[in-house]
Design a protein around this nucleic acid. Structure first.
Lengths: 240, 240
DNA sequence: AGGGTGTGTAAAGATTCTGTAAAGGCCAAC
DNA sequence: GTTGGCCTTTACAGAATCTTTACACACCCT
């Protein structure tokens, strides 16, 4: 379930909130000052951080600033000082939401859920893991199965002998489907550099990939080139 | 800059907010009821939607529900009815934030910025796909469906083989509807240059686009030229 | 009606982008 | 050192797209 980091110096309140959040199915860790929060973030990933403003050692704003230098975990700030300026400052320096302190637990839950839903949306299907990109070991697309841990690909159980580069290109295309992928993007993600003016390397890899994959059983080509834009996988039904 | 859709039946308030948001560098479109909002979303992409709850024709909650069936655009709800239950319901059915109505414009801006920042983060960061299946970039106009993430256009499910230039022209026209678009504007947005004295390139692209689209089923032409002014999409009912 | 201007479009030309073969280079394994 | 696999570069060809040219027509004004 979603791990939540609760940061508030009020131990009693933490206790209360933790219980409540756990009832709602979250996995709550609580710490009571900013430094402890940063330290814990170093070691674990959280789906969301709930951050009080007034705390000893390192206050909420400074904690948030340091946190944002390194992570983009969603942060919900909470404070008894619910003044407008505080809210604005909090939001400006990187909070995703800001609630005045005596707040309804139900509303808190609703806002947490909304934030998590947003993250999941953006990761579209990448599963419900904390912000980081959790790669599945297996990818499938039509009759292709690619096993990322073993670096091999099969097409209808027939093993295909792809190089690592070709495999990664294929992976990018599959992950993007049904959207297209830019050449520039492929260069960055696969070859790890930018596309120079006379660099035909990518074309070669694509050419080789196409040859090794071959067309679908019904003759449809596997991938379509969008001249000037990029490449796109096709499904066997498409007219090409 | 970021396009924002403002949905509120209070025309005066819309006016005020629009000006304010535009000062902050946003590109604001305002409509005054839910159905109009859904209709406009069909034709244009927005970075964020600001949605009032109490509206004629279709209230904010229902609008949000219908919106969420199709899009995952961030939504900030706003309501004079700032009761806790309302906030919770709004957040539950898909709002990303919820503000009570007499709200500080500065806070509104801060929250909008926070939401946009979140989206940008997710897009730039570990996200494995640029605008993938999570967010089907679809525009619709009559029987035309144009899918920006796969760069294809369908007319009654029939795929049309358009050039990117042609597609972008079409996109401009759809987004502008029911207003017309200047030649100069098309040149800038599509061909990325200014219209020279002997440049007939745009005419050719328009000609090709017209030919590929063909007329409506009932014979009405798809687009009308306003001599000396520009071009305009037609609906099948219009006399042309 | 007639000239001027703006627009539609066919055809030809120019340009840019892409596919692929072949050759060269790099590196790790043997 | 040699071999083999893989990545990159070179070179060329072909294709898709964009632009220009040319001419016809429609519209507006006088």
């Amino acid at each position: 379930m979603h791990p939540i980091l609760l940061v508030d110096d009020d131990v009693e309140l933490c206790q209360l909130l933790s219980e409540f959040l756990e009832l709602e199915g979250f996995d709550v860790s609580a710490v009571h000052d900013g430094l402890a929060a940063l330290e814990l973030l170093n070691r674990r990933r959280f789906s969301i951080v709930i951050l009080d403003v007034m705390m000893p050692r390192l206050n909420g704003f400074d904690t948030l600033r340091r946190l944002r230098e390194q992570y983009n975990t969603p942060v919900l700030m909470m404070s008894a000082r619910g003044e407008e300026v505080d809210r604005i400052v909090g939001l400006e320096i990187g909070a995703d939401d800001y609630l005045p302190k005596p707040c309804s637990p139900r509303e808190l839950i609703a806002r947490i859920r909304a934030m998590i839903r947003r993250i999941d949306m953006e990761h579209a299907g990448a599963g419900s893991s904390p912000t980081s990109n959790a790669n599945p070991q297996r990818l499938q697309f039509q009759d292709l199965t690619l096993d990322l841990s073993a670096l091999n690909v099969r097409c209808n159980e027939q093993p295909l002998d792809l190089t690592q580069t070709e495999l990664r290109i294929l992976q990018c295309l599959i992950e993007a489907f049904p959207a297209f992928v830019t050449r520039e993007e492929l260069m960055r993600k696969v070859l790890n550099r930018s596309l120079g003016p006379f660099d035909r390397s990518l074309d070669m890899h694509l050419s080789n990939l196409r040859r090794k994959l071959g067309p679908y059983a019904n003759g449809t080509p596997r991938l379509k080139t969008l001249r000037g834009s990029g490449y796109l996988l096709l499904t066997p039904g498409e007219t090409s």
